[in-house]
């Protein structure tokens, strides 16, 4: 029934050679990586190839790894083949200095808001996105809150001094 992870890996390696790498089996789900310039090509191939047919974008999100030089930001795609009921996870990494990744909105309409959310949280610049602006936060916000260097709490709070917590 389900497509085996080995088969997907074999097909991808046939097509892209060593451009796709870091194949892993995480709790039964195939996970791999590609250079960020290739993300659309890989998605398109997974979409079009009849024996793969990953035509449902389950999820798209960003991750920030401040410890990895030149690989600080990741965009993670969760794809699903609904017919064969197989899922996979696909990642691209990008340096935080040039966070440009091609948009998947041409392929999946659902990517629109998820990419806007990723831009809002992490500042990933999706090249070619029709309407790339903040979605959840206010437009005036001047930082990307989910990056690890930014604090969770509101820094303008004045009522939460140490004295109130017995530390003053």
């Amino acid at each position: 029934m389900a497509i085996s992870n080995e088969y997907i890996q074999q097909k991808l390696t046939e097509k892209f050679g060593d451009q796709v790498f870091n194949f892993e089996d995480t709790y039964g789900m195939l996970c791999f990586e590609a250079p960020k310039d290739l993300n659309l090509k890989v998605l398109q191939y997974l979409y079009d190839e009849p024996s793969l047919g990953f035509q449902f974008l389950t999820d798209l999100c960003g991750v920030n790894f401040p410890e990895n030089p030149n690989r600080e930001l990741a965009v993670v795609y969760h794809l699903h083949n609904l017919v064969e009921n197989t899922r996979l996870r696909f990642k691209v990494f990008t340096p935080v200095a040039t966070p440009d990744v091609f948009t998947a909105t041409q392929l999946f309409s659902s990517a629109n808001w998820m990419e806007r959310e990723t831009y809002d949280f992490f500042g990933v610049n999706f090249v070619g996105h029709p309407n790339l602006k903040r979605i959840l936060n206010v437009d005036e916000m001047d930082y990307f809150p989910l990056r690890k260097e930014y604090p969770l709490e509101d820094q303008t709070r004045i009522d939460k001094d140490d004295e109130m917590f017995g530390r003053g």
């Binding site: 969760h78 659902s110 629109n112 808001w113």
Partner: peptide, 26 residues
């Protein structure tokens, strides 16, 4: 959906919720 990355620390390194209505409201 819950997508969790754990780095072995006491909290998740990253937790992403796949919220269905966020996706279909567009």
């Amino acid at each position: 959906g819950f997508y969790m990355i754990s780095d072995g620390g006491r909290t998740p390194f990253r937790l992403h919720f796949r919220r269905p209505c966020f996706i279909y409201y567009q």
